[in-house]
Write a protein that binds this DNA or RNA. Structure first.
Lengths: 191, 191
DNA sequence: CTCCATGGAGACAAATCTGTCTACCCCGTA
DNA sequence: TACGGGGTAGACAGATTTGTCTCCATGGAG
């Protein structure tokens, strides 16, 4: 896994990433990607054997980026574990409110590609699991009684909030989720 | 709005509905729909001007069916409003556990069709609103302090549970959602 | 100087897919 | 009996998409 990837490869990845996200993976053709990235079709196919492989690479790249962004944004906003748990939905709120927000790319990918065996599906499952483990760790540090169950409840909230943002087009789901979360945390202390 | 629709039209609608759901709207061609429904292409286009119009009709039909099924299943399982609120997630659990379950068709439609102006998008928004109003009514009857806020929190849970069922492939999200819901109901009484 | 890997430009094959059009059939009814 | 609405069958136009292939340019290594 050479960390020193080609510049051309990166240009393709960036263009594809942006196009896939803004307009939907299925609705973006190879021709468009090469037009935006300013790369020849022959070149694209030298780096990626097929569109599916390109999709996979884009999603893996996005997953790394996103998780890093999310966790560091959360750590900037909260000091104690409990603060950080609640801050996650402030971070998400700002994401949902961004004018370029077009839904959670990982949820989008799963539902846009019906096939559950597609590599992009696994990437999304992994992202969800990474989030769950991160939350579980915070919950354990915060002294929540059952961090595992708590983290699964958390996944409901983040999924629900993302869906509201995508379908209704409003970040308000994040606020509601934050309220529910604080109720859940309280309920898991005094028991 | 003649309720006495043609038999042929209904056959097309049924075949399209099933195919769209099982394999994804975008991945089903007109030719497949006419093959399954045993109808000539000319006939399909006499009843539906375009594929988009067929999609719209299918989604509207599914929305009616689903809401009716959901509400009556809930009313079968619970007597009091509070019981019914909790029973919603038992009903959803049985839905998610069905071997033919392929995700919530309304969420699928929105994310599969990137275009937010597509009629199918509106259908999905309407379904969510119908659910919200139904829950809000139950919550009011159950004596919850703020039924409106409660119903929005509920939407998070049902969305989250559906997502878990679709992505992870397990109905367990419904159980977690039910637990969260009961915590929420309690929190909204004593305040 | 000569390879050869990397890249650009774009024609082209092959497969889809939507929607139209022709030609014909059946059946109830005026 | 003649007509017209609804139906079947399927060829076909037109557009689009992925992936291959040819031809050419450049620039660094041996």
């Amino acid at each position: 896994m050479t960390s020193e990837q080609s510049d051309t490869r990166q240009k393709i990845l960036d263009a594809a990433s942006e196009l896939f996200y803004q307009r939907g993976i299925q609705h973006v053709g190879i021709n468009e990607i090469i037009a935006i990235s300013g790369v020849a079709k022959r070149t694209l196919y030298r780096w990626f054997h097929s569109k599916d492989q390109l999709i996979e690479a884009v999603m893996k790249h996005r997953a790394e980026q996103w998780l890093h962004w999310f966790e560091s944004a959360v750590e900037d906003r909260g000091k104690t574990p409990k603060e950080r748990l609640l801050a996650t939905f402030d971070v998400l709120h700002s994401w949902y409110a961004d004018p370029n927000f077009r839904g959670c790319p990982f949820i989008n990918a799963v539902l846009e590609i019906a096939d559950a065996t597609h590599p992009a599906h696994h990437v999304s499952v992994n992202v969800r699991d990474s989030i769950r483990q991160y939350v579980m760790r915070l919950a354990a540090e915060a002294g929540v009684t059952d961090p595992d169950a708590f983290s699964q409840q958390y996944l409901l909230l983040i999924g629900g909030a993302s869906l509201v943002a995508t379908i209704e087009g409003t970040p308000s789901g994040a606020d509601n989720a934050k309220n529910v979360l604080s109720v859940l945390i309280d309920a898991n202390y005094k028991r």
